[in-house]
Simulated assay, not measured.
Amino acid sequence: MSGDRQTIDDSILEAAAAWVARLQSDDATAADRKAFDVWIGEHPDHRAAYDELRALWSDLEDVPISEGRLGELRAQRRRRVGGFVGLCLAGGLAILSLTTPYGDRWRADYYTGVGEVRRIALEDGTEVDLNTDTALVVRYEQGLRRVWLLRGEAFFNVAKNPQRPFVVEDGSLSATALGTRYSVGSAGADFPTDVQVEEGRVQVEAAGQNAILGAGEAATIDPEGRLSLTKTDVAAGTAWRDGKLVFSRRPLRQVLATLERYRHGRILLLDGSVGDLEVSGIFDLHDTDDALQVLEASLPLRVLRLSGLMVVVQSR
């Protein structure tokens, strides 16, 4: 169907992104605009593609956006359609409106809000630390203790009971404690499902694969569904339990994605060229604005706070 954004050819989208980037630049010429008018008139899909990409950042005319990055942002928007209501305008600014996690919270026995971290005690004496925006269901049976992680991340200090195994599931894997302390993180837009073991052992099963992890080891499900085992710094990875976020030579894009988990709204990296910059540091997860200030002061970045719900990061 002509003009349908889901069926527009990728080559047209790339050309539209190039025109958006060109026309919003300071050195756009009259000849560029004339050529653009010709291109727009060649096919209805040209106008549909241009209008959507331009609407993404309609109020960011002073922010240079490369055509490649603009295309990536559009692709991200399409991939995350289940996670966003869409675009809305508030106060003349483009803001992404997030769907709330009320569905998972409605089903959950325990949950935390965005930016909240808290500890709970289960009936068997197991202690659970819930990370930001986490929801879980607990079902204890005669011979089994089962937890469903609906969203987010949780750390389990499991009370030993060999007659009643303790199993955490999230839909893509199950992690059975063999008397241990470990964390399970459910898959999100920017993070894979993973298990990190601080003490003891954990048996992990996923897609017909099995592995037993020891202290200091982690298991991750890669995009192809394979179980990948690595050594990891569990203390750093679970420092959120103490209100801290610890990064050691982590890519900036990953750091920003982590910070975004602890605040309402979006942090958008407009310049993909700086996404690979390495970041090391310890930040207070309750003050992500301060973390962004530190990043801006220590890296060649510009942080634009467009509203309480939208932060844009670009290179200087």
Rank of each mutant, 00 (worst) to 15 (best):
G3H: 12
D4Y: 11
A16T: 00
W19A: 03
D26H: 13
D27M: 06
D27L: 05
R33A: 14
A35F: 03
D37I: 09
V38R: 14
E42S: 13
A49I: 09
L60I: 06
E61T: 09
E67T: 07
E67R: 11
Q76E: 14
V81E: 15
I95D: 11
P101K: 05
Y102W: 15
G103I: 04
D104L: 06
Y111L: 01
V114A: 00
R118S: 10
I120H: 07
T126K: 09
V128I: 12
D129I: 06
L144V: 11
W148C: 08
L149D: 02
L150A: 10
F166A: 04
V167R: 15
L173Q: 04
A187S: 13
A187L: 06
A189V: 00
T193G: 13
E198F: 03
Q209R: 15
N210D: 10
A211N: 14
A219K: 02
A235W: 02
L245V: 04
R249N: 15
L256D: 01
A257G: 15
E260V: 00
R261N: 02
H264K: 15
L268C: 12
D271C: 00
G272W: 08
V274G: 09
S280D: 09
S280N: 08
H286P: 04
D287K: 03
T288I: 00
A291E: 00
V294D: 12
L295A: 02
S298G: 10
R305M: 07
G308L: 05
Q314K: 11
